[in-house]
Amino acid sequence: MSNADHHLVAGAEGHQPSLAHHFSSHRQQYEAGKLGMWLFLLTEVLLFGGLFCAYAVFRANRPEIFIWAHQFLDKQLGALNTAVLITSSFTMALAVRCAQWDQRRLSAFFLTLTLVCACVFLGVKYVEYKHKWEEGLLWVRQFQPAEAAASLDESGTSDQQPRHAGIFFSIYFAMTGLHAVHVLAGMGAIGWVLVRTLRGHFNRQYFGPVDYVGLYWHLVDLIWIYLFPLFYLIH
């Protein structure tokens, strides 16, 4: 865009309420916000990076714990939750697309679908956590898996329980728990842009917040894409 164009656009947009006064155009405002969101996502990747590092160290040093303990995770439920989260990412991408085209009702519809998927995801997570809670499959200090381990040994599918087996559930709850907190935060953010969409705050020139929340939601999906094989698909 040439400089002359820039001033023309800025002049035409000068009095619009959706354009903050310190930006010269909607485009500049949009790209500044997007860069800010990406920098935030960078810090999120680094935050989860610490936990991925802990996982790598535990798994490299104690592979037998992971091979033993992963039998207590339900692969089908994990795959179901992966599919649910991918679907929510898809509906979020459609919601962003509709917001860009100023299709408010359709955008609100897809945002609602995304929220429904997020609820299903947390519902499945609740079922999984509840099962582990009842079986005593908790983090190291609370790890008392008497019954579950006994039933596995009877059926002959399990080797002897390795020492420090609770480490698996410590890192499992830390990573999936932090991820679940991010899902909750994402639901709050999606609810916020849903309300703003219904109030008609967004149009073809101003849809940044929907786009930024979408980016955050896709990152939450992206982290789960790695958590699924690392915990559920251990071979």
Partner: peptide, 19 residues
């Protein structure tokens, strides 16, 4: 934007590998 993401991934990779 891709560079920002690549930078984050690079440092996570360095972190994990060195540890």
């Amino acid at each position: 934007y891709a560079l920002v993401l690549a930078a984050a991934l690079l440092f996570v990779l360095l972190f994990v590998c060195l540890t």
